[in-house]
Simulated scan of single mutants.
Amino acid sequence: MAEINIVCDYPHSPRKVWRAVTEPELIPRWTSTGKGARAVGFRPEVGNRFQFVAKPMPGWRGIVDCEVLEVRAEELLRYTWVGAEGEAPSYVRYQLEPTPEGTRFTYHHTGFTGIGGFAMAKMLGSIRKKMLTVGMPALLADLDETGALRRDAAEQGGR
Rank of each mutant, 00 (worst) to 15 (best):
M136P: 07
P58R: 06
L124R: 05
Q156T: 12
V68C: 04
F42D: 04
E67Y: 07
L149K: 03
L132G: 03
G157N: 11
R104K: 15
F118V: 12
E87P: 03
N48Y: 03
D152L: 12
G157S: 12
N48V: 09
L139A: 10
G158M: 08
I27M: 09
S13R: 06
G41F: 00
A153R: 14
H109L: 09
K129Y: 13
N48T: 14
M1W: 07
A88Q: 12
A154R: 15
V21A: 02
E87L: 09
G34E: 06
V64S: 00
G83E: 12
A154K: 14
T33N: 09
P100K: 00
R78C: 02
V17C: 05
E70M: 06
F52I: 02
K55L: 11
W30D: 00
T110V: 14
P11L: 05
K35A: 15
D144T: 08
M123T: 15
W81Q: 01
D9P: 04
W30Q: 04
L139T: 04
Q51N: 12
G125T: 04
A54C: 10
P44R: 00
T103L: 07
D65R: 14
E75M: 10
E45H: 10
L143D: 04
G147S: 12
A119T: 14
K122V: 15
G157P: 11
A148D: 13
L26R: 03
M57I: 11
R19M: 05
P56C: 11
R128L: 15
Q156P: 05
F118M: 14
S90G: 11
N5M: 13
L149R: 05
R43D: 02
E101P: 07
L132W: 05
G62Y: 02
F52N: 00
A121H: 01
V64G: 00
E23L: 03
L139M: 11
P58G: 05
V7T: 13
G116P: 07
G158I: 02
P98T: 11
R78Q: 04
R104A: 07
L76I: 07
P98E: 11
Q51C: 10
A121T: 01
A39F: 09
F42P: 01
H109T: 08
F112C: 03
V53P: 08
G62A: 08
F112M: 03
L76S: 02
C8E: 09
P89D: 12
T146Q: 13
R104N: 03
S126G: 14
T31C: 06
G86H: 03
R93S: 14
V21K: 04
G147C: 10
E74I: 06
S13N: 07
E45W: 01
M120A: 15
L140E: 08
G135F: 05
E23T: 13
G47S: 09
A84K: 13
G158Q: 07
G135M: 05
L140K: 10
T133G: 08
K35M: 15
Y10M: 12
G34A: 15
G117L: 06
L96E: 00
T33R: 11
A119C: 13
T146P: 01
L26S: 07
F50R: 05
L124C: 13
A148M: 12
R15V: 10
S90E: 07
K122Y: 14
